[in-house]
Nucleic acid binder design. Structure first.
Lengths: 355, 355
DNA sequence: TTGAAAGCGATACCAT
DNA sequence: ATGGTATCGCTTTCAA
């Protein structure tokens, strides 16, 4: 510690303030504020002068102070839980980019085992986020959610809460799961199974119910309906090892891709089954891995871009002055037929990286 | 619009403030502040009373206002770029959880193509983040980094900048890459290749140089040193297809796991090679996929927990009053020998999920 | 220990 | 179009 400094405090040179800039430029502090606020009444000359001055003195408006006066934080809280499912990092990255485009920075709240949920939600409110996007959170109860989102724009992505008036955007799980069932039927499979992921989640329940009821409608036999317990490769692997031993099943729908990929490896490497000859496989999401030639997984693609676009739009609506009504949106996706269900797909045998 | 309300403005019931709570409880506003600040001089009785009152009237301190007074935001900016590399979502999730434990919320800044980097950095400063963690960012120049981190705690993770006095924490890339080379040598391979990822990144350069020079020291032949151009499955696949055709190579070190996994599929499915008999493969990182039985990838494990712990510690040091000197830290990892290099590993043939 | 009052750095309303 | 000033909600001296 070389405390050779004189009386003068070290004064870790604070950034310059609007007041100070105003003083140096000989204008009012209000002028500074206007220069940085689009759509205010200020002469181009004045604005020019101030912006130039700001450049010179390295002035940047203090967002914190501005938040305090405007009561707008320009921050969106993203509540996240399943980061180990590859679908979500992708979604979150895109979402956060689009939010940025709308002038909202993303504050992340990880809700996972190991983190204190209560504390997280308190933080969410303390930071005064303008908007909350809850992404397929498992653990949050309806009551917590209501509390966390109260009084601010909020959108649930890929999850809904019964009896809670919250806006939500999802992939149409029913459409997708029925499409898978239809596809299994179309390729001549009659003994099908379902492998679930995280129990009690919207995605899981909807996919399971829609699939099973469509299977019944089509007159197919449901040989198994098991739960992996979580959305993971390992869970899919284990479930498949179980199902695959009883040789009476010829098609399996996994509630998402990462489960399906685990199942794929179990069937093929673990049990020596041929895919799709012995057993056809389908997943849900269309994560990058499902396009890998090794797997070439038939799946139902979530319309990620549309989901994000809709989310942004709904946030903007809620942020705008005036009333709004919570609405639920289920967006259409696409069935992607790949080799895990139809081995001889011509378009698939050409190159390794076709959709 | 049912504007049936009387004179009284609609007043979207703002949250209650400290002043108001103080009024209702008949205490001073300062007392409220003290009650919520650990280590302040306030009687237990008073604190009790206030906390109970806060409960009753649903008072929560406004973090924004507090930031303005303290000039502490309790926010850490996390600058991120390679979210498609599975290593990073995991790292980020853990990091953000640990930061939370230290009372720092994570504000994400995605620096990717498609995002306006300049704007991002400006935001980083405007939000007055207390700390910045830059995670293997590619695109940021030294000058930008200096500007973005100036005057606040900053740690670079898995990246260093020559000639820039910034604190950094990395996996020891040199140690790891040499260990891979040693391992190849130990299992009798003599014609080895290197496949790089993102050019000009610290991780890539260090791994490449260390590997190549160790290969030379050991008297092995370097048959190829190619760049995939990015860290991705596809890049690894393509590079492997190229290398694999010339049949004079018996071991390949990929600069990270996701590259290696792409390479694995290319060698095995694309070219029909046997792994490891025909060609041994190693990666770097130890992402979850490398443990999948399908791949069972030999790799060098990054000490994620240690990296995070060190990062947190360094941030705390910098946040504490007083001087600090930027330091560089390279943390030791572990070589994990799996079936992609040693096919008959006894410990590996038992169950599907061994390390 | 407690309360009063002066900031923190912007915004926004009001005159001019 | 510009400047003056109250205000946002909290922290932090300073007295009492």
């Amino acid at each position: 510690m070389d405390n050779t400094e004189p009386e003068q405090p070290i004064a870790r040179s604070r950034p310059i303030t609007a007041r100070e800039l105003a003083r140096r430029l000989g204008v009012s502090q209000s002028a500074i504020s206007r220069a940085f606020t689009p759509g205010t009444s200020i002469s181009p000359a004045m604005r020019q002068r101030i912006l130039r001055g700001a450049e010179e003195f390295d002035y940047h408006p203090n967002a914190i102070a501005s938040m305090l006066s405007t009561r707008r934080s320009n921050i969106a809280g993203i509540v996240v839980s399943e980061m180990q499912n590859p679908f979500y990092p992708t979604l979150i990255e895109k979402l956060s980019r689009e939010l940025q485009r709308e002038g909202l920075q993303s504050l992340m709240f990880n809700i996972t085992r190991g983190s204190n949920i209560e504390e997280q939600l308190v933080a969410l409110r303390k930071y005064n986020v303008d908007a909350v996007v809850v992404i397929s959170a498992t653990v949050l109860s309806g009551a917590s959610l209501r509390w966390a989102t109260e009084g601010r724009a909020a959108v649930l992505v890929n999850r809904t809460i019964p009896d809670l008036p919250l806006t939500s955007v999802s992939c149409d799980n029913v459409e997708g799961s029925r499409a898978i069932a239809d596809h299994f039927h179309a390729i001549g499979r009659r003994n099908v199974a379902f492998v679930g992921g995280l129990p009690h989640t919207t995605t899981n329940l909807e996919r399971q119910n829609a699939f099973i009821s469509r299977v019944a409608e089509l007159g197919m036999t449901l040989t198994h309906a098991v739960s992996g317990g979580e959305y993971s490769y390992e869970a899919g692997y284990r479930a498949a090892m179980e199902i695959g031993r009883s040789r009476n099943v010829d098609a399996v729908f996994f509630a998402n891709d990462i489960l399906a990929i685990g199942g794929f490896d179990a069937f093929r490497d673990g049990l020596g089954l041929r895919i799709p000859e012995d057993i056809a496989i389908a997943g849900f999401d269309d994560i990058a891995m499902s396009r890998w030639p090794r797997y070439s997984l038939t799946t139902f693609r979530q319309p990620v871009d549309a989901i994000i676009e809709k989310t942004i739009q709904l946030i903007n609506e809620q942020l705008a002055p005036g009333r709004y009504l919570p609405t639920q949106h289920a967006l259409s996706g696409d069935l992607l037929i790949r080799r895990s269900s139809v081995g001889d797909l011509a378009s698939e045998t050409i190159g390794p990286f076709r959709t």
